[in-house]
Design a protein around this nucleic acid. Sequence first.
RNA 1: GCGCUCGUAGCUCAAUGGAUAGAGCAACAGCCUUCUAAGCUGUGGGCUGCAGGUUCAAGUCCUGCCGGGCGCGCCA
Length: 556
Amino acid sequence: MKDTLRSLIGSALSKISTEKAWPTDLDLGAFVLEEPNKPQFGHLATNAAMVLAKKVGFKPRDLAELIIQTIGPGHELIESMEVAGPGFINFRFSNKFWVKTLEKILKSGLDYGRDLTPKGRVLVEYVSANPTGPLHVGHGRGAALGDALARILSFVGHEVGCEYYVNDAGRQMRILGNSVLVRLNQLKGQEVEIPTDFYRGDYIGHIAGELAPSLGDDFENLSNKEKVEILTDRAIGIILTGIKKDLSDFRVRHDTWFSEKSLYENHLVEKSFDFLEKHGHTYHKDGALWFKSTAFGDDKDRVLVKSDGEMTYFASDIAYHKEKFDRGYDLLIDIWGADHHGYIPRVKAAVSALGRKPDHLGVVLVQMVNLLRDGQAVNMSTRSGQFVTLEEVVSEVGADAARFIFLTRSHESTLDFDLELAKSQSRDNPVFYVQYVCARVNSLLAKAQEAKADPEAAKAPIDLSLLAANEEVEIIKTLSTFSETLTAAAKRLEPHLLTVYLSSLAKLFHQYYGAFRLVDEDHWALTRARLELAKAVKQVTVIGLDLLGVTAPEKM
RNA sequence: GCGCUCGUAGCUCAAUGGAUAGAGCAACAGCCUUCUAAGCUGUGGGCUGCAGGUUCAAGUCCUGCCGGGCGCGCCA
């Protein structure tokens, strides 16, 4: 829709520019085309005249008029052009244009909106929760976001990898092993206090119980340190298995599970230190190794190796990002909880120090989820070890509802997630409203099958030009902007744009359904055209839902 | 204190710098002998926190206040 018009306006402008001898350094392409928010302003509007008028000594409206005259009448795809407001040019497309648009959409089928022009390789890293306990709702939001984003990026032409970074090294892991050991000793009847900084959730006890029978007789003879090492490994294994199952039930996929420990085992951390040192980005002070992140805009330098010889989390994170780039990715997307925002400058600094541009790393911060039930807050507390797990939420409301609702809001605003609303089957629940489009179209098609068609009429080619009602043009127009929505969602890393789009398409369709009788035996030619439109709506809805990882039911 | 971020209808939120700021919920009034009422139609509701600035044009960009959230460790 926009391409046609852009080239038309562009050539008109260059013609005028030559005639009026405008300065050659003028940017004639610096105008935008946009959909006006009011139907009386036509289908598409441009601000071209307003952008240029002052620079070339015109009144905006006069320039707009000149552009219209230069384009001239007689384009079969354009019905009308007019100057409006402060100098907008409003375009109205012809019936023929909309017919062609709809034909193109239908012809593309489930590939409609797909962009095959190759773009860069992207690695999306998401969830990456420490393997110290089950996933909770907050992780679910990150999971839904990362997974949908990956699907969208792939659909618009990127080569996408999905990765989970497993923090299986460091202090947290030792605490995990120790926490299990304490429970194990309790199981044997020993009176042991659980230290306050240990993990206290019930699942630790379950892990201890699960492991106890398989540890063997020799276990008792091992040193405490050896016991903790074994238990740590085993516990990580059990917890990761649980995490993988929760994600798989949530239909969230990762191609690779990258172990932090492997960075140390393969000496990648030292190698990244060497790289930084060689380029003069590190120094020693107070017995510690520092990264000069202030040289890249961070507000203080950061420690890589503590004076006690232990590595910081940041140290392995630098190695990890270097490793990801070394694997050949052009763009890294990290999805983090919003409480990590203070961490961004130092990682961006590291990316710069590694010789990349800061925008080769895109960080998406996901805000909190407030879990509600009938409008009342559900108590979530990690301290007591009692929190609402992703598994509980998914088994209660289903993966479809959970995924869709997680993606209804911009990731940068906190989300209220009402369990009862997510289960409700009504207009209030956006998932059902959108899914219902698919079911409703199917039922229309079934209805049309039953209806007795005039055999002569059924043989004739379908005449889409009968779709001339405002509601019908509005729907085709919305369908035609699908790929723009996807491009924006991919570029801005905001899958919720797609969710919003699907909701508004659903609204248009349900309104259309209410306003017209779509299957009408007395007007069969019109019915056939309308069913094509309905099919196109369903088709786009199916594609969109799939990109969000939500199923499109045939029947509801 | 410093930094990041958000502030839009009673509530939850939309709005690539564009024209009269939009939806849903809640409230009120309607629509089922006819395609799924899991739906549709209509009515009310706003100094977009405040004040400046940039721009032909600001909810959007810049500056300063006010208010909420978060972060400021040789933690992860």
